[in-house]
Amino acid sequence: MLYLRKRERKAPMLFILPSLFIVAGIFLYPVIKVLSDSFFLINGADRKFIGLQNYRQIFTDKLFWTAVTNNLKLFLCVPVLVVLSLLFAVALFQRIPGWKVYRILLLIPYILSVSVVGIVFDYLLREDGLFNQILQKAGLGGLSQPWLGQTDTALYAIMVVVVWKELGFGIVLLLARLLSIDESVLEAARLDGAGILKITRYILLPELKSVLSFYIILSMINMLSWMFNYVFVMTRGGPQNSTYIMEYYIYQMGIRYRQYGLSSALAIFLLLFAMVLVFLQQQVRKCLEEEY
């Protein structure tokens, strides 16, 4: 009997073997290949094992730390995205006049491609661009700058564009969760005299906790691994390498400089960084689940 059960348990394994093979091929193989490459000095077809030398090289590289710092700075977008998404989602949930139109308008930037957004903002933010013209018309001409063309503003200008573009996703995510809340609970709160602030504080926010934790971690991972297009289209890492981020540096190192070993080491570092975030997300989720 026990023997039969064991066989029964093994049978499904055989059925999932093909899909396992495909999953391994698609996901695991590239990671293992990159990990393996990160221990080699690769020069054309020649490969020489050099242990952790690539990692030592990148850790002593100033530009690597600039890229890491910039990725960390990009995390500043996360609280901004969360707060704005929350505000807009609650406002739309309250069905303010014209909320359906606003919902569409707020989602449009998210639908646009990064390349289009990058090019448009490139025009808007240049020294003779619309943004500076508005500043001048408002009597604030002294503030006009080449926003993407100078080291102390370029990254922050990119961050503004990122928030503008990515906000729509957060709003839709939170709004979807809000719309699934039992209407009777809200009705009861209103009958008890709760205003919008109290409803938000005591009903909506607790209901949004798990979605918010997911959104925060997702946004942080985005700031690490999905910013390449913005940098590539708007600044190409410049001016003066001031907007280098990890992804762009991996690209430059691997594709432009043909330093595959170093590029792989950078990629593994980025992967580990992202994995730490995923782990954090799981811990936060567990905590929240235990709380309820």
Partner: peptide, 19 residues
């Protein structure tokens, strides 16, 4: 000029002059 010196070095250095 090696690609790294070119793109990380010369590009940025020229931008420095204009900045």
């Amino acid at each position: 000029i090696p690609a790294m010196v070119d793109q990380e070095g010369m590009y940025a250095a020229t931008q420095m002059i204009f900045s």
